[in-house]
Nucleic acid binder design. Structure first.
Lengths: 207, 207, 207, 207
DNA sequence: TATGAATGAGCATTCATTCAT
DNA sequence: CATGAATGAATGCTCATTCAT
């Protein structure tokens, strides 16, 4: 049934379907999105959708994958800068780009990311988490004094997950109790204060 | 349509339906949960479900309300202790009870909480967030030196949302990269380090 | 199950149910009328309805019967006058009372009569038709010259059925093309002109 | 939802559904007719019914429309003859064809027409009434002496509504007290006698 | 006798998926 | 390859009827 598209025409159709999927889910939510909606939005017949995707779920999977790919690409582009920046600035740089990403195309990705969480929480954030972990490690490499930090894996886990969720939740909230600037500044402070305090606590006793 | 339960028998049925709702959502997810499943699980006929609830959504609402009530009750019981404890210990106390709560009944609430987040992000965490904000304020009252902390609303928002999500995500992950103890300790450190650093930065200049 | 009410209390309940039936059907139409509506309107429990009526259909039957009884009673009261009046006046007298009857209680009976037709067209108009036939015969008795009229059964059938339907349809029409006075006058003319012409056609050849 | 049928195949399916609708309503009444019955009778799946009709009501509407179209077509074919005939003969001609129409296909239309009256009394008889009014007017044009007739709208209303209902009722009655010939002759007499008498009453006073 | 909670068959409608063209 | 008509299982919900109290 579903065949890997090897022609460019096919590639374009697959792309149209995925984009249509984003539009539909953003417009009506994942539950109310039907294959007919997606096919119509993509400008193809329902039957054709099944030429490229095994079933509806496969479209959602491809959407997830696409989203992750884009975030990953974004982070990889940013990585060199990030590793060089002081930790607080690095956090703010990431959040600035991440916020922009979620706002793109009428919040298409923001709306989808909320829906995507209950489909498969792991695959969605997983690869992004892993890449961020890597970036953290590279950052530490570039800032040797951070080697003294304890619990880096645990704290990265917390900062990354807590950060992503806080941002998604904040952007999704029509009446957020704080501004986006306060949020990003707060997240930067959270991280940099933590680091500063850790460095202080683990400082070699002055002679 | 939906009658108010005034008899004891009715009250028990309402309860059975709500519990059945939790079981079904935990087992199959909110989207795949049908009224028939809930009624069967509750050991009643489909029609009876509609004696007590206007529609399927009303059952989910009642579930949400029930969950929130339980968390709120838990937090209110804990509140006196929390406010007296040092901030790090307070965080660990809350997380210990919150973790237990999510694990109860075969992770019934844990599984449901993941589903609940997307459907109506606001109503679900909202009341809990508000109570936690209050507890934060009371904690500050009991620890006057914390009055110096800046950005309390923003940081509370971040700590609360980031904390809740990190915990839910961690408990949902079959192969978490860190242990629950590391997570709670990390969250406690995150908060207490932040506070310590803030106090340091805002300390009156020493003579 | 359903027992004949022999106590006055029972009689009152039966009556309340029938009246409730009329109110419900008038308000929501026969299809949308449920046993619960009827019971609620009658101020009794659903179960009690089944003490007095075999099923929902039995309530509708009783309503029909009641309506017919009332029309019959009305006609019997009118009969002595009718038979003495000239035919056109008789028609107008009947229609005046019949129109009033249909308008009573917020058009309760008018609304029900439209609904009643598809349940059982025969039982509904049947007894009324028969009584009207009788009245026609009595009228003829009092007006011996009418004995000459041919096709009395056929013409009565036409006048009675056509008349009843025209009136019900006219009163049910929110924008009738003619007034009720025009209708009654027309029906009276229809009958009296017919009679006059018949008498003319069957007149014994003058010597 | 409901697609416009543009293919020949589709047109046939739409037709099959409408015919199935007539059969079902004739067999079980409009209230007891379900989408499943219609689909089964039409030899299609339930879902297909919704490819062509928005909902069940739309099928009934199409049936009404179809019925009205056929009666209108019949009347329009007859119109030239009707206008030329003497009034009594004209009535009998119409009733002869109308009776045949109602008897067609195992009284399919007769049975449906009884049901249709209550659901939407206006749309059902409305267009037919209007056309008959027109035919009446044309008849008057061809018979200039009829211009003297008073109350033409009121009398047409009565004759048309009373006539249609008498015929439907008579054909629906398993034991009618008079024959169909007596009925049609009676209706013809009713009209022609009325006209004759009116012409007499409004005749210019002889010198 | 009166009740109303419980029932479950039945309904209209949707939609992922297939397959003949 | 592309299509979209056809399908029917599945869903949320209603309501006439029963029966334990």
């Amino acid at each position: 049934m579903a065949r890997k598209p090897q022609q460019q025409r096919s590639k374009a159709t697959v792309d149209a379907i995925i984009q249509a999927g984003f539009i539909c889910v953003a417009e009506r939510g994942i539950v109310a999105t039907t294959t007919r909606h997606i096919a119509d939005t993509a400008g193809i017949g329902v039957g054709s959708l099944y030429e490229y995707f095994k079933d509806k779920e496969a479209v959602f999977d491809a959407m997830n994958q696409r989203m992750v790919e884009e975030v990953v690409a974004m982070l990889q582009t940013l990585a060199p800068q990030i590793t060089r920046l002081p930790i607080g600035e690095a956090v703010k740089l990431i959040l600035s780009h991440f916020g922009d990403f979620l706002q793109r195309n009428d919040q298409r990705y923001l709306k989808c990311s909320r829906q995507a969480m209950n489909i498969d929480i792991k695959d969605y954030v997983g690869p992004i988490s892993r890449l961020l972990m890597e970036i953290v490690m590279q950052h530490v490499m570039h800032h040797p004094e951070h080697m003294r930090l304890r619990h880096i894996p645990a704290m990265s886990y917390i900062f990354i997950n807590g950060g992503i969720f806080s941002v998604v939740r904040h952007l999704s909230d029509p009446n957020p109790p704080i501004s986006y600037e306060e949020l990003t500044q707060g997240l930067a402070d959270m991280v940099s204060h933590y680091v500063a305090q850790e460095l202080l606590l683990t400082a070699p006793a002055p002679r």
